[in-house]
Write a protein that binds this DNA or RNA. Structure first.
Length: 328
DNA sequence: AAAAACTGCAACCGCCAGATA
DNA sequence: CTATCTGGCGGTTGCAGTTTT
């Protein structure tokens, strides 16, 4: 029995919630707000449910911002992409899909997407063709990091890009395998969580309007180190960065979740299109705007930039300074 | 028409980590 | 430092509705 099981002192109901119970919980929440679930049974008159059950009911059903209904094609592909990187981290996946709960996504995955992939001969755990799985496991973490040439941010989802050292697919395999198996994988995807349980990052916001122009979730690369290479595959050892998570500054909108700046000490460099597929993003240094990513743009040259930020297009220089890339 | 099998989904269980006493 | 509480998470279960036999 887990420590967190519902207490049995009081006779508490289990099973499906009745409309009356929903009403009582809603009344409680409208009066006391969300939080301190353990006190709900005390304060919500006549509601004989444990706090944990109340929390779940609120998050999965009563919350006003839930979308419900069938998943769109777009949502489906987001889930597939994210699952490829994150594995069964449903809460983190849900944080990228506004209005969807982890439970909902988990159910959708287990009842639908998993079968779909298997039908296509793809292993739902590795996202690889079923016959190709054997070599993946057992590759050491150090090797991944060594071999990991760069990340690609594509449609808001983290992807590995192909490069010379990935030609045989081993690094990618290892990466994907690791992401599924290791709960402390080097990429932390989530950038922030709002008080009602999921974040309000840019992907979420732009998703509703124009997915193609959403900013990459660079915040997800926080506290991690990665080696980058140029497009030809030769290693650019001077271009390794520590990418730190930023915090939303009070003067900016939610989009500051995505602010990123790179700090001193690296050579002028080119970000290849396959590395970051960004759009609607300005690249600013202290000198002002030094570049701009547009949809399908392949190269952005950043010259003499000792410090620059990746910001929403049209924002002011220096407005976004939250995320700092440290050259190692 | 009835029983069996299947499916989707809401809810529960047990573990973990962080906060607090 | 330890014990306890609490929120959060992923895995699993069980029920109700639907489809198939």
């Amino acid at each position: 029995m887990g420590r967190h099981s519902c207490p049995v002192k009081q006779k508490l109901r289990k099973g499906l919630w009745s409309p009356e119970e929903d009403e009582k919980l809603l009344q409680y929440i409208s009066r006391f707000g969300v939080g301190c679930w353990s006190s709900v049974p005390k304060h919500a008159a006549g509601l004989q449910r444990c706090g944990k059950s109340c929390r779940l009911r609120w998050i999965n059903y009563l919350r006003p911002d839930l979308k419900r209904g069938t998943f769109s094609q777009q949502e489906e592909s987001i889930i597939l992409d994210l699952h490829q990187v994150l594995g069964n981290r449903w809460a983190q996946i849900a944080s990228q899909l506004p209005g969807r709960t982890d439970n909902e996504i988990k159910n959708f995955w287990n009842s639908c997407l998993k079968k779909k992939l298997m039908k296509q001969g793809i292993d739902p755990n590795t996202h690889k063709p079923v016959s190709n799985n054997a070599c993946v496991h057992g590759k050491k973490m150090e090797n991944f990091e060594k071999d990991l040439d760069f990340f690609s941010v594509n449609n808001g989802g983290l992807m590995l890009s192909s490069s010379s050292s990935m030609e045989n697919g081993s690094t990618r395999d290892a990466f994907l395998s690791k992401s599924v198996c290791d709960p402390l994988f080097l990429v932390e995807y989530q950038s922030g969580i709002d008080p009602i349980g999921y974040n309000s990052n840019l992907l979420a916001q732009h998703h509703e309007t124009n997915y193609e122009t959403s900013l990459p979730n660079l915040a997800c690369l926080d506290h991690q180190t990665a080696d980058f290479s140029d497009h030809s595959g030769s290693k650019m050892t001077t271009n390794s960065f520590m990418i730190n998570e930023g915090r939303e500054s009070s003067s900016t909108t939610n989009s500051s979740n995505m602010n990123t700046s790179l700090s001193a000490g690296f050579q002028p460099m080119t970000f290849e299109g396959e590395m970051f597929q960004l759009s609607g993003v300005d690249v600013k240094s202290e000198q002002g705007c030094v570049g701009q990513w547009q949809h399908d743009m392949h190269d952005v040259q950043v010259n003499n930039a000792s410090d620059f930020s990746i910001c929403p297009m049209g924002s002011l220089p220096g407005e976004y300074t939250d995320h700092v890339f440290h050259h190692i």
